[in-house]
Amino acid sequence: MTATATVHDVTMRFREHTALDGVSTTIEQDTITGLLGRNGAGKTTLMQLLTGHRVPSQGRVEVFGGRPYENDDVLRRICFIKEGQRYPEQFRVRDALAAAATLFPDWDEDLAQSLMRDFDLPAKRTVKKLSRGMNSAVGIIIGLASRAPLTLFDEPYLGLDAVARQLFYDRLLADYAEHPRTIVLSTHLIEEIADLLERVILIDRGRVLLDTDAESLRDSALTVSGPSAAVQAFAGRHELLHTETLGGHSRAVVRLGPGADGEDARAAGLAWEPTKLQQLVVAMSLQTATDQSAPPSATSPRLEEVPR
């Protein structure tokens, strides 16, 4: 596979806070990649680096073979829908879309119009008078209709209800299938998007915990339950991520060693089910929290918002 973007040993510091710490990853071309992690993990910072909104303190970021920062050749191929993005208040919805149409060379006006109808957006209403959900819908329409070769959505659905989110997923999948391009999607609603993803990058405290294809991830972890001794013995042969015990009964999230699967758990007398992506992300994030000597809440300030 070819890479749309490569991030090589990137560190990003804001005053004393290190938002990204020696991060290396690639965003594969024409995939939908999920960028997952807790608040303050560094997701937004990584997206800002990929889109030339920031320059790394150390390391190298390359997108479409060039550095993105102040590089028009790269930037016109990128569309970044930020979390809670606000458009100029006096603009009507149609003005915001018209402005976007001039920015993106691959803009598809028909798609924009059909999405406007799907999301029931009033074209003549000013941005100032939009609800939060409507404002998010404007971002989603711009992100999809831009057809940008690299499109990033950072928590795009503030205020969107379940129906509108489903609409977003369906239209994203349909348009991506017709016009393959590189999509990066950051969200906390992991279970909702799990099956849409081809690649998963999990970051925690500025480091990459997981960087893999979604399908192999699905088979890589099990939730097993049974008598505590049997669960412990089984977990000991694999990588234990998280465990809970009640009475003599335990439940554990376990990352499997190579070649292992649910049959091994069954043979050990345990009930098992595949671990859902969301459970895996939670278990892995909690594990690094307990690995750190410092108390987790004190060391995870949300300093990503510090202005330059």
Binding site: A162, V163, R165, Q166, Y169, L189, I190, E191, E192, A194, D195, E215, R218, D219, E273, P274, K276, Q278
Partner: peptide, 16 residues
Amino acid sequence: MGRPAGPGVNEDGGPI
């Protein structure tokens, strides 16, 4: 299933 609606596939039946 965590997602809002839709038929989907069985969550527990192995690789999608």
